[in-house]
Simulated scan of single mutants.
Amino acid sequence: MWCEYCDKMKRARTKFVDMLRLHVRGGPGGMGLPRLGGVGGKGGDVYVEGKEGHSLLKVRKARPDQRWVGATGMDSRKYRICGEAGAELVIPVPTGTTVWHEQYKKALGEINCAGDKVLVARGGQGGNPNNQYNGQKGQAHMVKLELKLLADVGLVGFPNAGKSTLLRAISRAKPKVASYPFTTLQPTLGVVEYSDMRQLTIADLPGLIEGAWANVGMGHSFLRHVERTHFLLFVVDINGFRLSPKHPHRSATENVMLLNRELELYSPELLSKPALLVVNKMDSHNAEQKYKDVRNFLSSASEVSQQFPEEFRPEQHVSFDDIIPCSAKTNQASVLHIKERVRMFLDLYQDLSGQQGVKEEKAIQRVHGQLQEGPLRLV
């Protein structure tokens, strides 16, 4: 594990939070009034609710002790026999949040849209004849909030491949860009707009490193965001990449295979997502020949990959719908081409999967069939 990298990740977590543990407790019920048969008010329930523009960082700052307790139900009294229920407590969270019961490792619900609510702790019953008029305690347990970015497209690649530069060129996002690895320390969302007012969201994820599937370099924190994207845009540097002087240099072809392997080890289901491959920095010396080598490799990847060491040889290969050469920094035409191809394939998949009785897997198979039969075949 590279210490400098991990130090940067720890600093980034102070600005972006995608997992948070909270102690939640429903409010206690109010006391009943035995001599008059009065019933105490129910304790307030605790909910998690989706809110636009919110973040888990705001949730963490709102309660430094991470304890959220519902309001107490009112006691029964002679001038109000039925005590008022305690007010419910709502914890605002960003959309894309999954709520887990920490002890039982069970998902309590998902927040996919603003206004979605999940009950995380019930308030206690008010005092009544069944409990000798003693107000009951509310439910109390630990919950885990896990954020997975909701985006149409997810950028996947090793550090310094040019993902942030591409996102800047293709959208209105302003991620930090520099000529050294690990510029992106936290996920960034960009919005791509088209002339007909269509909009797509693209998530720029921090660069993976070898072993991300095993959570090396906080790999799980990044890979979980890929799960909620509809389309993957792999970005590799035509010149390859070297993590540090302690690591070997990997060619562009090896990087494609390693990215494939990292996703496969984390979750094989990710390989079934539609994907494009962007070969970036084509303004480099001898880039055309290297690009031909990448295409030749991918045309027979399952056979050629047998020549590589087993530790980064995937069992299942990503089926790229297109391989696009690009120079995100100097060639705007190549960026516009990527923009149009991403939309074309997204629309194609969504149209097919939207047809009645056609599952997403079938839609992918149909698109691949059309690519092989028609003039769109590029790989």
Rank of each mutant, 00 (worst) to 15 (best):
F222I: 15
V278H: 02
R224M: 09
Y133L: 07
E52D: 08
G29F: 01
H247N: 02
P129M: 01
F158K: 11
E269P: 00
H230R: 06
L208G: 07
T253M: 10
L352H: 04
V93M: 10
A169C: 03
V46T: 13
P34K: 07
S221P: 01
G43C: 10
V235M: 06
G27Q: 07
A107H: 01
T330G: 03
L200A: 02
Y5V: 13
G40T: 04
K290M: 02
F234G: 05
V143A: 10
E146P: 02
K281Q: 13
E210A: 13
L271S: 09
G154P: 01
F320I: 11
S327P: 12
M74F: 03
G37S: 10
I91L: 04
R224A: 01
E4R: 00
A169P: 10
V304P: 00
A114M: 07
E146A: 08
V59L: 12
V226N: 03
M19P: 00
E84A: 05
E373Q: 12
E264Q: 05
S353P: 03
G154D: 07
V304N: 00
E269I: 11
H220V: 14
P92Y: 05
L155N: 06
N130A: 10
S267M: 04
S195E: 15
K273D: 09
W100L: 11
S251Y: 02
L265I: 03
E227P: 03
H285N: 05
H141W: 06
L371P: 02
M344W: 11
E361F: 14
V335H: 06
E264S: 11
